[in-house]
Amino acid sequence: MSEVASGEVVRSEAVSSEVPAIRLQDVGRDFRRPRRSLTQAPPVVHAVRGVTLDIERGERFGIVGESGSGKSTLLRMICGLDRPTSGSIEVEGRPIHNQPAARLGWLRHTLQLVFQDPMSSLDPRMRVRDIVAEPLVAQGQGSGAARRARVVELLEAVGLSADSADRYPHQFSGGQRQRISVARALAPGPDILVADEPVSALDVSVRAQVLNLIDDVVDGFDLTLVFVSHDLSVVRHVCDRVAVMRQGEFVEVAPTEQLYADPRHPYTQQLVSAIPDLHAALDGRAAADLARAVRERSPDA
């Protein structure tokens, strides 16, 4: 736990002896657009700029942003699928930003992912047993029989019957496919679960089931949760703390209830006031009111 190395910034508030689950320091990621002209340098897009953040162990952390806010890029870097152009990323105290993929084996059973689209997140040509066992196979964990037993155990943990193992993804509904996705993520016994819009593509009646499932596994397996969504009401339900992202930057990071009750940044205010809400609508908030709030609180105004 002697990770004093990268610390020019010593945090006064975090006296806790524990290393945070995820530590981001001044993380930036630039993308080079394709060249448009022979003489001029290609334009550069700053997808993520100067993000600094600690996510504590056991925390449920939400990242909210609209399309193009850079939240997906940030997520890929946290998962070691992309590297930052500046800054550092540590997972459980170990740097991942400067490591080649071949040396990130440990990260693959520390941190796992659940995706948005239940159609494209499972290989249509694989049986469920092979999908769920994939992280085990990749890391050479266990014998064939041990893996089979583990798959059944995992399927039952996410509320699917053992005979699901022999089927193909297309035989399941969207909600069931998200369960399979969760089972796969749990397979290597991770400490951190990263969920990228896991309920955005689901029907309302199924959404509640999957949110409950995520709740259950985060509690039951003692996980740290990073939950990314464009839907503030879902994040509000799931997370302890929320970061609002816009144009590659965190504009506000606050405990969930505080962020909703008293948003500080104009963009957060705009976002919070733009969400259609059933109760507010029944109390008479019409589309015109939402639109007015969005116009008045525009952070660019």
Partner: peptide, 17 residues
Amino acid sequence: STDYVTAARAAGHGPFA
């Protein structure tokens, strides 16, 4: 470009696998 390939990378599979 599918998520299942991303999942395979996150599971630790190399390009050949």
